[in-house]
Design a protein around this nucleic acid. Structure first.
Lengths: 141, 141
DNA sequence: AAAATTAGTTGACAAAGTCAACTAATTTAC
DNA sequence: GTAAATTAGTTGACTTTGTCAACTAATTTT
């Protein structure tokens, strides 16, 4: 039955939106906002990115990002290097301090998930991860 | 391996946040914002709610909700009735127009999901829903 | 070499959310 | 039974987040 399927999926979407919201609250209470964490995440996992690339990765307005990067720069979290190939573009990368800051957030996020996993049996944990992988694979087409 | 599990879950969370974001964009382009849709959803599924109850259901600031309800009232989407039992509280319910408006949004959301399901084989569809139910059950404890 | 495009910055603004003070109604506690 | 405390909802002031368009400087395209 198709309609029932749709309802189940929408119900899951509501449920999971809520679930992720609860998880994010935690990191949210650091002095980084969620969009800031996402940008730091991308910078951490890429060595170097242009502002353009970041806006695409996290689908953020370039004006907004520009200001965010300025505050990151003031806090010495990032370093900018004008691209050799194209002087319009700037390569942005985390400073050692920026990397350390991200690692704190990363640790908090890990702990958060770890707390949830801890409350589950090994069997449920495996089922959870299998289900997530299944969903990801199916929806990635 | 626990760390790998954590990574997989975080990866799924990023993936699904993004996925839901894409789905929501669609409804977002109606003239209702996401929080507005959530409030309409709750009102649609409850006949009558107090403002207090709504703030709890969608975890929204009461000031913000108060203003939102005022605009809903101006657009004749809701009706308010002072509670007989407690004159501080107001029972809020959708007008017939409000219900029709929500049904349009609901239809759009269904179509959105339906489009995704359409692209899947029956087998994948079943696996997708099973996985969602599994996750929901495991994480609801 | 002029015209069009692109990366990033800036300013003006709109939308969303937070917080505390306030009113009116209702409990609670003496 | 009445004063004090609590509760539902409104309002105002403010912050944060996001949008949009104009602008500068560099680079392609024609």
């Amino acid at each position: 039955m198709k309609n029932k399927d749709i309802d189940r999926i929408r119900s899951f979407n509501r449920f999971y939106t809520n679930h992720i919201g609860l998880i994010n609250q935690y990191i949210y209470h650091s002095h980084y906002s969620l969009p800031e964490v996402r940008v730091l995440f991308e910078l951490y996992h890429h060595k170097s990115l242009t502002a353009k690339e970041i806006t695409e990765l996290v689908s953020m307005d370039k004006g907004l990002l520009s200001r965010m990067l300025r505050t990151f720069e003031k806090r010495a979290l990032i370093k900018r290097e004008t691209s050799k190939e194209d002087a319009r573009a700037t390569n942005i990368l985390l400073t050692p301090l920026g990397r350390r800051e991200y690692e704190v957030l990363d640790k908090e996020a890990n702990d958060q998930i770890d707390n949830i996993l801890r409350s589950l049996s090994r069997k449920d944990r495996q089922k959870l991860i299998d289900s997530m992988n299944t969903i990801k694979k199916i929806l990635s087409h």
